[in-house]
Design a protein around this nucleic acid. Structure first.
Length: 869
RNA sequence: GCCGACGUGGCGGAAUUGGUAGACGCAACGGACUUAAAAUCCGUUAUCCGAAAGGGUGUGCGGGUUCGAGUCCCGCCGUCGGUACCA
């Protein structure tokens, strides 16, 4: 590129305008109370998923989503909205900490360096962020409020109506209801209801990372970060009771304007299923075994039962003769990693305990097995097996030669044969249920069970409580103390709790977090010690979109005034109007943020019950080889290089022109060049180069209105670009602007006002070039401000004039039997008779032999003759 | 296996409500300018038959609905993403 001549001096232009915007504060979003705030302007909040500032710097995928939101932001500002478009840093996280371990350099240093680099890169792309609202999750002034929100969770519970309330209210109720209760019991009861609680549960321990991970962070038995093996281990950890919100997280998803795929993924992750819990008496023990089933109508077909190997009743049930087999199976399973357990899923395994249970519906005696296809973590950790109507049970029954009894007939009538039938049908061999259809049979049997106290209706969720502590240094410390083995909250006035300075960030190799090594810090007082776990990376990103509305508030996480203005759109469920980011956060960040938002909503801090009204996922940009970009493949495109060669406007425009925003699409170096050439054509539409090689305004530009055809082209372009930008179809908007440029390039008298309008249309896409040309155009046509000084960013978006689109003659197509035979030009006001007669006189007449059945006229479009030969 | 998205020229893609398939860009080819090249500008470019005029075929495959289907319906095939013993 070095010696090739530039199409236009983009480097100089872009740097200058970026400096100008920064100095002038062009894109500052004023809040209520700010000088110059206009209360009549409607607000619009456009949010990007803020990046983790990694050492690799910005990549073209960031640039894609951020360009899209920047176009929308600039567009909406020109349409009269007060637009908030902020940016910040999700800067706690593993890479900085691992780098610190390797080099001994404090993560703060790496983080600051990386955020500086990211900020510089983003500014170089000309994004219209309000940098006064920049936030960083690792700033004490920010995480003070992350810790504060944690305390709100700690001090809250969910009442019977499903709303979060202060736990103090529950404490009062409890004291009134159980006045005799001792202090320890009272405390245990309250802790069992808190939204933030401590529990000893089997958790995902990753030895390599030296920390536990949430279910959502484990993929196929490996850590999502790094791909290291993860094992289940019982550990005492902080948990958040997200399961109390399962139903609302499901229900309140409905009205959101999100991609259907993301909604489905959240629904599946929450995994609601309706059914019943049923008690089976265990023979000879006096104890009962509770199972969960979604098909209580198949109770008569239960021919055996299965417990998860970890189930507490296994020891009670196992008979002497089976003790050895059971013990060895249990230890075999315990040694399997989650990965092995799922990989071997095809082959069913299990062992008979020797014990029997009694089916409550028919008093039948059925054997109880243990098998690892039953999970301790779902339902009750035990199932009744109905091999005739459940594939897994069927497989197991075949492997161990257990009886299979059909109790549901398929509606078609014919029997399923060898394989099992798991659909709905008519109950058979089922006593009181015989002849009933499945839904009716379910209702009947549940009523029967409930009347006899042998079972009850039950809804189960796959969603588990959120494991909220990590054994890391670079995260938010918990605002919690431990005294005599009991946790207690720090007072709000002690926030933020900052991590101590340390030289050694290494994991301890045990469950003990690195912070435990800071002995002096841990010792809060003689009796009290600080919690040494830290919060997961998701904590900071759970509420950052709220903080942008009031980023410097030191008295509160968010003032009611800012909340009312920026986060309360009365006509929609969510607070943020438009949220753009990658689909990889479908069930992590987006679920956690919804949860916190609902808690804060319930506690009265927020006006809307959902955070994000409209969500758009940008598609991945692949390398030029159509493979995922990765360092090892060597197909990574660095935006810095592209900007150096072609400029930020060309990069922005190319990424928007590649195809629909949501779609996965490969990078093409040639493609960027094409858009760069387009910008060069735009430049030369306005500018000529003189003998000295200087760019001067073209003499073809005249202060007069465009002639009719060009005026139509102008208004067609206004219409199309407006509509396409509205629906975020940026690629087709750009295509139309190319057509405009082609049309006006061919004109030797170029209307200055038409060109100014065009610059407004292109401005959100290529802000630097257009602002520059606008200034130069003002020599010929002063700006709308009267003094020629008004910038495009301050101009209103144009509307199109419908009358300019009108044409004297319009084209109709002529079809015979739906097949194109000719195109004819007719007067726009032609009546139907004349149109048909003209159409039948066209080239179509050669195909009109035979009987004319009917003639179809689509106004403004076509005439179709239907002929039978 | 299940759920979701998608399948259109050599390539990226367009066709918003069923109504001209291939807008726009890339690549390729031809021409202008130039001593020459680069850059720029103009033109051609789905495919088959034909010298041409013109005609046939064509949106993954097979069927259907309709005057008319890339678009709607049924059944397949393929690619990508998610998920995986959740009873």
């Amino acid at each position: 590129m070095s010696d090739r001549r530039k199409q236009y001096p983009f480097d100089e232009i872009e740097a200058r305008w970026q400096r100008h915007w920064e100095e002038k504060g062009t894109f500052r979003a004023l809040s209520p109370g700010d000088p110059g705030f206009d209360p009549d302007k409607p607000k619009y909040y456009v949010l990007d998923m803020f990046p983790y500032p990694s050492g690799d710097g910005l990549h073209v995928g960031h640039a894609e989503g951020y360009t899209a939101t920047d176009i929308v932001s600039r567009f909406m500002r020109m349409r009269g909205y007060n637009v908030m478009h902020p940016m910040g840093w999700d800067a706690f996280g593993l890479p900085a900490e691992q780098y610190a371990i390797k080099t001994g350099q404090h993560p703060r240093v790496t983080t600051d360096r990386n955020t500086d680099r990211f900020r510089t890169q983003l500014k170089r792309l000309g994004f219209s962020y309000d940098w006064d609202r920049e936030i960083n999750t690792t700033d004490p002034g920010y995480f003070k409020w992350t810790q504060w929100i944690f305390l709100q969770l700690y001090h809250a519970y969910v009442d019977d109506s499903g709303r979060a309330r202060p736990i103090a209210e529950l404490e009062k109720e409890r004291a009134a209801a159980c006045p005799e209760e001792g202090e320890a019991d009272r405390r245990a009861y309250l802790d069992s209801r808190r939204l933030a609680y401590v529990a000893e549960v089997p958790v995902n321990w990753c030895a390599e990372l030296g920390t536990v991970l949430a279910n959502e962070e484990v993929k196929e038995g490996k850590s999502e970060v790094g791909g290291f093996p993860v094992e289940k281990r019982p550990m005492r950890q902080w948990m958040l009771r997200i399961t109390d919100y399962a139903q609302r997280l499901l229900d309140e998803l409905e009205v959101l304007d999100w991609p259907e795929g993301i909604k489905t993924m959240q629904r599946e992750w929450i995994g609601r299923s309706e059914g019943a819990e049923v008690d089976f008496m265990l023979e000879g023990t006096g104890e009962s075994l509770r199972v969960f089933t979604t098909r209580p109508d198949t109770l008569f077909g239960a021919t055996y039962m299965v417990l998860a190997p970890e189930h507490p009743l296994v020891d009670t049930l196992t008979v002497a003769g089976q003790r050895e087999a059971v013990a060895s199976y249990r230890s075999e399973v315990a040694n399997k990693s989650d990965l092995e357990r799922t990989e071997l899923a095809k082959e069913k395994s299990g062992v008979f305990t020797g014990g029997y249970a009694v089916n409550p519906v028919n008093d039948e005696r059925i054997p109880v097995w243990i098998a690892d296809y039953v999970l301790m973590t779902y339902g009750t950790g035990a199932i009744m097996a109905v091999p005739a109507h459940d594939e897994r049970d069927h497989e197991f029954a075949q492997a161990f030669e257990l009886p299979i009894r059909e109790v549901v007939k398929a509606p078609g009538g014919d029997e399923a044969g060898e394989s099992c039938f798991s659909g709905e049908g008519i109950a058979v061999n089922s006593g009181l249920l015989d002849g009933l259809e499945t839904p009716e049979a379910k209702r009947t049997i549940i009523d029967w069970l409930e009347e006899r106290g042998k079972g009850e209706r039950k809804v189960n969720f796959k969603l588990r409580d959120w494991l909220f502590s990590r054994q890391r240094y670079w995260g938010e410390p918990f605002p919690i103390l431990w005294r005599e083995g009991k946790h207690e909250p720090l007072d709000e006035c002690e926030l933020p709790v900052e991590a101590p300075e340390m030289d050694d960030f290494r994991p301890t190799g045990t469950a003990e977090p690195p912070l435990a090594k800071a002995v002096e810090w841990v010792a809060y007082s003689d009796e009290a010690a600080r919690e040494t776990n830290t919060m997961p990376q998701w904590a900071g990103s759970c509420w950052y979109y709220l903080r942008f509305a009031d980023p410097r508030n030191s008295e509160s996480f968010l003032s009611p005034e800012a909340e009312q203005y920026w986060l309360n759109s009365r006509d929609q469920a969510g607070s943020v109007d438009l949220y753009v980011g990658g689909a990889e956060h479908a069930v992590l960040h987006l679920l956690y943020a919804r949860f916190w938002h609902k808690v804060l909503f319930d506690l009265g801090y927020l006006s809307r019950n959902e955070p994000f009204h409209r969500l758009v996922n940008q598609g991945l940009i692949l390398g030029p080889d159509s493979q995922k970009m990765s360092k090892s493949r060597g197909n990574v495109i660095n935006p810095d290089d592209v900007i150096a060669d072609y400029g930020a406007d060309a990069l922005r425009l190319y990424e928007m022109f590649m195809g629909p925003l949501e779609q996965v699409k490969p990078w093409s170096d040639r493609g960027v060049e094409g858009l760069y050439r387009f910008l060069g054509r735009v430049w030369r539409l306005f500018m000529d180069q003189n003998q000295e090689g200087e760019w001067v305004l073209s003499p073809t530009i005249v202060a007069e209105e465009p002639e009719k055809e060009l005026n139509r082209l102008l208004h067609e372009t206004i219409k199309k670009v407006t509509e396409d930008t509205e629906r975020m179809a940026f690629n087709t908007a750009i295509a139309q602007m190319m057509v405009f440029v082609k049309g006006f390039t061919g004109a030797d008298r170029r209307s200055a006002s038409a060109l100014r309008t065009f610059l407004i249309l292109l401005n959100p896409y290529a802000p630097h070039l257009t602002e520059e040309l606008n200034v130069r155009l003002s020599e010929r046509l002063p700006g709308d401000g009267g003094d020629g000084k008004l910038e495009l960013a301050e101009m209103p978006w144009p509307g199109h004039d419908e009358s300019a689109l009108a044409q004297n003659e319009v084209q109709f197509i002529v079809q015979v039997n739906g097949k194109l035979r000719d195109r004819i030009m007719v007067p726009a006001e032609i009546d139907k008779e004349a149109l048909i007669s003209k159409a039948s006189a066209s080239k179509a007449r050669d195909f009109l032999e035979g009987e004319l059945v009917k003639t179809i006229v689509v106004p403004g479009k076509l005439v179709n003759f239907v002929v039978r030969s």
